[in-house]
């Protein structure tokens, strides 16, 4: 996807421009993916006879594909749309790592069947912001170290972005309560709360 596809999750089409972290940082040169996922076909057809054609709209892109009724939105996005930002921590709606927005509302994509999401607007972490155009909450997570391993982070960010829009950020305790559907095993909760509060104070989304 290009940066032009990077819209705010409220669907208002607002784009967040560069908010680069000013702190110094080195460059990380990780071993390459043996085959970068971008070199693979974007959509892989499902093999089963029970598969049916569906149309999904994710991050303002439209995907036409066939899906089995039993495929969850999470598995379909991760395995067939190359959208691996949403994570699978439990597959049972217990951890929140797969949180996305469906029509602007938070949803656990592991508890959501893909075939039921036709005609809805789905936003994932890949649609929230990019490295060159971070969403303010993404920048705040870096600033306040609202993560360690980063695995729950896409889900935390999607929950946090919704929280800001929903207005559940009146106090630290309110944020804690409304962010309690997302487990962070590294225990970065104080940083997550601080990050959400800082964006709230900045008055950016609202």
């Amino acid at each position: 996807m290009t940066d032009n596809d990077n819209y705010m999750v409220d669907g208002a089409g607002r784009r967040w421009f560069l908010k680069q972290s000013t702190a110094l940082a080195g460059t990380l040169l990780l071993p390459p993916l043996a085959t970068p996922s971008s070199a693979l076909p974007g959509t892989v057809p499902a093999a089963s006879s029970t598969a049916r054609p569906i149309t999904l709209r994710v991050n303002r892109k439209t995907y036409k594909l066939t899906a089995e009724p039993r495929e969850t939105l999470l598995d379909l996005m991760r395995n067939r749309l190359n959208l691996t930002g949403s994570k699978k921590g439990c597959d049972h709606g217990q951890c929140g790592a797969c949180t996305v927005h469906i029509d602007g509302r938070r949803a656990y994509s592991c508890l959501t069947l893909a075939v039921m999401q036709q005609g809805r607007d789905i936003t994932t972490i890949e649609g929230l912001g990019t490295e060159s155009a971070l969403h303010p909450l993404q920048a705040a997570f870096i600033e306040h170290d609202g993560f360690q391993c980063g695995f729950c982070t896409p889900g935390q960010l999607m929950a946090g972005a919704a929280l800001l829009r929903e207005g559940h950020t009146g106090s630290a305790d309110e944020i804690r309560e409304w962010m309690s559907g997302n487990i962070c095993r590294c225990g970065a909760y104080p940083g997550i709360v601080a990050a959400i509060q800082s964006v709230k104070k900045g008055g950016t989304p609202g």
């Binding site: 702190a23 940082a25 190359n82 930002g85 929230l128 490295e131 971070l134 993404q138 980063g150 982070t153």
Partner: peptide, 23 residues
């Protein structure tokens, strides 16, 4: 200092083992 991999982690661009795909 901010984490050097912070931007990858907050954008879904950090590739964990489960994100690896192969033909």
């Amino acid at each position: 200092v901010d984490r050097i991999d912070g931007k990858q982690k907050v954008t879904g661009g950090a590739h964990y083992a489960g994100d690896i795909k192969q033909p």
